[in-house]
């Protein structure tokens, strides 16, 4: 399977390019690489602790937000226009190079 790249800006502003596989949730990739997301519910769109911002030039290219996700964002912190729950974005070849910024998540 082709290895894809996920670009991540961490809370401290540092940029990282990490390997990603198609079919994986962005949340799973972030968690495997030790980025500070809790992902408490394990990817079920139930906890809002895998909150990220999608870089502006990628916003229109990721799958649109579902209603569940919109509601769940009500309990996320510092929600912005480009807020997403990373468990609801699945990596595909079309998203090779996707850039997300880690958002504040509960400690």
């Amino acid at each position: 399977m082709k290895t894809l790249t996920l670009n991540v800006t961490n809370l401290d502003g540092t940029d990282h390019a990490v390997e990603a596989l198609a079919g994986w949730q962005v949340m799973e990739i972030l968690r495997d690489h030790g980025f500070p997301i809790k992902a408490e519910c394990g990817g079920a769109c139930c906890c809002a602790t895998c909150h990220v911002y999608v870089a502006p030039d990628w916003v229109d290219r990721v799958n649109p937000m579902g209603e569940d996700e919109e509601v769940m964002l009500d309990s996320a912190m510092d929600v912005r226009e480009n807020s997403r729950l990373s468990c609801q974005i699945v990596m595909t070849e079309a998203l090779d190079g996707l850039h997300v910024i880690i958002a504040p998540n509960p400690e």
Binding site: K38, C47, T49, S75, A76, M77, P106, E107
Partner: peptide, 13 residues
């Protein structure tokens, strides 16, 4: 405001 109540759900600690 002199008081704020915030209800953003629960998290695990």
């Amino acid at each position: 405001a002199d008081c704020m109540l915030a209800f953003y759900g629960l998290t695990m600690k």
